[in-house]
């Protein structure tokens, strides 16, 4: 009897979906980035690298630098919060309840949640009013419209995306290894850094990717809670597309963003693979 490979059939809808909504649009962006711009939007069908030469200027690098720094900070803080939370959930008796609570915010629209943060951090907001009524501060603090507000809201937004993969890794982690480490004389910190964290590395990696990459592409968060200096790549691309209507430039920025993240993930995954292979040989 001939063996049919059902795998291909099962994944056909997904393949088609990705082709239509990912591969084709990305190819269009790639193509447009090498064309000439048309005044007030659109492209002329002539080859040109203007889109790329226009990138070589100080202001673009400044924006890229700002974006990367913000994203790194946000990712680091997200992991710092997500690891203990996931540990707690994985060890808890009410896992389902806690997981459910992690997912609850998804029921509300993303933009509405940003506006909720504005009303928490604002001058007349919850936090300022509480501090004022407790007498800790005398006049409202300016908590919004700066890069810290961007980081806070980014961390909040991507926290669930970090908790879920971490949880699923930690749940599978064999906690008796920690006991064994302690029995063999490791301190609490040693067992944490040498046994626990390496053991959940794959979860940490997924969580990092899930946080860092969307943070790089932020648009609405810096727009709404950022200040006059908070201009991220996403905002720059939107501006080139919507305001100055330089489609090739917007496309070349998107291509650069895509290439940089792809290379980043590639390196990230590869170093990890090498390490785990080493471990297996041992």
């Amino acid at each position: 009897m001939k063996k049919i490979n059902y795998g291909k059939i099962y994944t056909a809808p997904l393949t088609m979906w990705i082709t239509f909504f990912f591969v084709i649009p990305t190819s269009i962006i790639f193509l447009y980035s090498f064309l000439k711009k048309k005044l007030r939007g659109g492209v002329l069908w002539e080859f040109s690298i203007d889109g790329y030469t226009a990138l070589i200027n100080q202001s673009f690098f400044k924006v890229v630098w700002f974006t990367v720094v913000i994203s790194i900070f946000a990712t680091f803080l997200t992991l710092l919060l997500a690891i203990p939370t996931s540990y707690f959930i994985a060890r808890s008796k009410r896992k389902n309840l806690y997981l459910f609570l992690v997912i609850v915010p998804f029921w509300t629209n993303f933009l509405i949640r940003i506006f909720a943060w504005i009303s928490i951090l604002g001058n007349n907001g919850f936090l300022n009013n509480m501090l004022l009524s407790l007498g800790i501060i005398k006049s409202p603090l300016m908590l919004l419209y700066n890069q810290y507000a961007i980081i806070v809201v980014t961390v909040y937004t991507y926290l669930p995306y970090a908790i879920l993969p971490l949880y699923s890794t930690i749940e599978k982690f064999d906690f008796s290894l920690l006991e064994a480490a302690r029995d063999l004389g490791a301190s609490k910190l040693q067992s944490l850094f040498k046994i626990f964290l390496p053991g959940i590395r794959s979860g940490i990696m997924t969580a990092t990717i899930f946080t860092f990459i969307p943070a790089l592409g932020s648009y609405a968060i810096p727009l709404l809670v950022g200040g006059q200096k908070s201009f991220m790549i996403g905002n720059l691309i939107a501006r080139e597309l919507k305001v100055t209507m330089n489609w090739p430039l917007a496309s070349s920025m998107s291509v650069v963003l895509t290439v940089v993240t792809t290379i980043g993930i590639f390196i990230f995954l590869n170093t990890n693979k090498n390490k785990s292979e080493l471990k297996n040989e041992n």
Binding site: I118, G122, N123, N124, M142, Y145, L223, L224, G226, G227, Q228, S230
Partner: peptide, 14 residues
């Protein structure tokens, strides 16, 4: 504080 065309009315009101 910022260049804003979207929510300055709300920020002014609050």
């Amino acid at each position: 504080l910022k260049f804003d065309s979207a929510s300055f009315g709300k920020g002014f009101a609050s």
